[in-house]
Design a binder for these strands. Sequence first.
DNA 1: GCAATGCTTCGGCCCGCACCGAAATATTGC
DNA 2: GCAATATTTCGGTGCGGGCCGAAGCATTGC
Lengths: 235, 235
Amino acid sequence: MNRTISSNTLAEIGALMGDGARANMMSALMGGQALTASELAYRAGVTAQTTSGHLAKLTEAGLLALARQGRHRYYRLASPLVGRMLESMMAVASTQSPPRYRPSSRIDDDLRQARTCYDHLAGRLGVALADALTGHGYVRLSEDGGTTTRRGEKFLTGWGIDLAAAAEQRRSFCRPCLDWSERRPHIAGSLGAQLADRCLALDWVQRRKDSRALTITRHGLRGFKDLLDIGLGSA
Amino acid sequence: MNRTISSNTLAEIGALMGDGARANMMSALMGGQALTASELAYRAGVTAQTTSGHLAKLTEAGLLALARQGRHRYYRLASPLVGRMLESMMAVASTQSPPRYRPSSRIDDDLRQARTCYDHLAGRLGVALADALTGHGYVRLSEDGGTTTRRGEKFLTGWGIDLAAAAEQRRSFCRPCLDWSERRPHIAGSLGAQLADRCLALDWVQRRKDSRALTITRHGLRGFKDLLDIGLGSA
DNA sequence: GCAATGCTTCGGCCCGCACCGAAATATTGC
DNA sequence: GCAATATTTCGGTGCGGGCCGAAGCATTGC
């Protein structure tokens, strides 16, 4: 078996993601922040020594990058490419075999409401934001890309988004990212990252300690409503 | 372990791709054609009964679609989303840990020269085509999207590409796809598919029986040279 | 220095699953 | 119907790898 080089390494990547503990770690790191080995151990629900082995494999394979800081070791996704791969795997995972049983939990509900996806907003909030921006004619999204309109540039700049900075990065400016929970696109790319940053800076959403889920503040509820007429009931 | 829903299924997808035989099958199906169970067994290098089990799992998970035809069962990727996932996994696989030993084989060389990637052209040919089209100012590629220029539309239409048909499909018109062998982008999306179709129709490239590799005809060598000044030495 | 914390290495257990041989079940062509 | 081809089901084997306990570094703070 293993007749071609390419599929060998494809299988290796698959095997790395194919373990529950490792998948949980990668998923946690899609929050965009660097996490320590102990935090990842807790998230994955395995002991520190097991985690150590997993992280060594993931780092060795080039999926994670390591930054030592004192007695802590901070792990993060090695590149946006890895984040993109995780996005696409989760997109496929969420569309597969709909008839199967899907228990939903509290933690899951919170993730569905609002969360970070690598470096941008996802969940109902992320999708609602994308819908509002396209609905108002500020942004146009196609299946694989997107642009801001003239009016959109004005609007976004007025809201404190630095479009020039976003545009000059080497990464994509604006692209859709399939939301695994909503099964509809939200906004990724440097514009997506800027939108998330702005919402965090305005304290409209807050990061949580142990999860990729985001808390939408009272402040934020009003802000999204006033600015873009986004209603985020309780849901 | 397995504390969140999302990573559970992420792990399931990973585990499916994490087996060498299954990865080889999926990789073979990235050629864009439907293949029978026996053909996939041969490609994966395992017996028919083992293959049967693998295909059942992949189909059950929604990664493959099945079409019965007489006593044959034709399998193909269930959706473009799956193809995109495979692309991104191979892109990550090809950029990981460069220092490691990479034996190169004949079959591998052929794949590197020219092959199909789901439904468009890849390998040195695919990248050279993308380079030529952008170099002549016919196409503009950003990191996550692309467009044709006015001059490009004229050129492509003149070459027999039906741009209107390509544009009206629901899928993306033009986007870069990271080539795992060249580590540089080639052209995907409906434009990419049309380019591949055109090259096949003109008999500039031919499909092979047992591989995703493509043969560039004598005819094609001249055509690529004359039309776009693409040199495809022996390499 | 010493204790505490963070992380890794070692050793051994054990489960899951990929694999194949053999046999059963389609489907086609004659 | 019969033989040939295509595919699946069943049963049993064997190995890879995930897991944890215990012990071993490394770093910080006192």
